[in-house]
């Protein structure tokens, strides 16, 4: 144990439903261990903190080699969902529904609620200036957990001494 409190920072660059959770789960665990948490949302990661997108995150089975039919409890071993089936309309919606159901069964909160918990627990969250400019997002499009929009340089300044996780 050193005198300085441990700090951890997450860079969230993905907007898929499955890629939303790593930072949320680890960030929550960090807060529970008394660690300072900073989160920086960039590129597709901004979907997680945008009001219109946060409840509509999806997971697509196409080109996802980890997607096995056995996840649905079928005795199919390593048999994956063929990409040709993945492109059938409704497959992404199905996979998304399925993942949400599995998470709910484990009592894992939805992304919106998770972000609120993290914010209430003291995590600091920021949007990436360059992406915000590029996508034409406004401050009012963000969930209230976003404190401000900062540059990559600002992020570097505010995470001095922190361990950084890129997702």
């Amino acid at each position: 144990m050193t005198d300085q409190p441990r700090k951890i920072a997450f860079i969230c660059s993905k907007g898929d439903l499955d890629m939303a959770y790593p930072a949320l789960i680890m960030g929550w665990a960090a807060l529970g261990n008394g660690i300072d948490v900073t989160m920086f949302f960039t590129f597709w990661g901004l979907d997680l903190v945008t009001k219109k997108r946060v409840d509509r995150l999806e997971i697509a089975p196409v080109a996802n080699t980890s997607f096995k039919m056995s996840m649905m409890g079928l005795p199919t071993g390593n048999l994956g969902i063929p990409n040709i089936m993945g492109i059938i309309p409704g497959m992404t919606a199905f996979a998304t529904w399925f993942m949400k159901m599995k998470m709910k069964a484990l009592d894992v909160p939805p992304v919106r609620e998770y972000l609120e918990m993290l914010s209430d627990g003291g995590a600091k969250m920021y949007g990436c200036k360059m992406t915000v400019d590029m996508f034409g997002i406004k401050k009012e499009d963000f969930l209230p957990c976003i404190e401000s929009v900062v540059t990559a340089g600002d992020f570097m300044d505010m995470t001095e001494g922190a361990q950084i996780v890129f997702i």
């Binding site: 807060l31 261990n33 918990m117 209430d120 003291g122």
Partner: peptide, 13 residues
């Protein structure tokens, strides 16, 4: 609330 819990028991309630 989460906020109050962190206030009552700071750093890992």
């Amino acid at each position: 609330s989460t906020k109050e819990l962190f206030a009552l028991y700071p750093k890992g309630p």
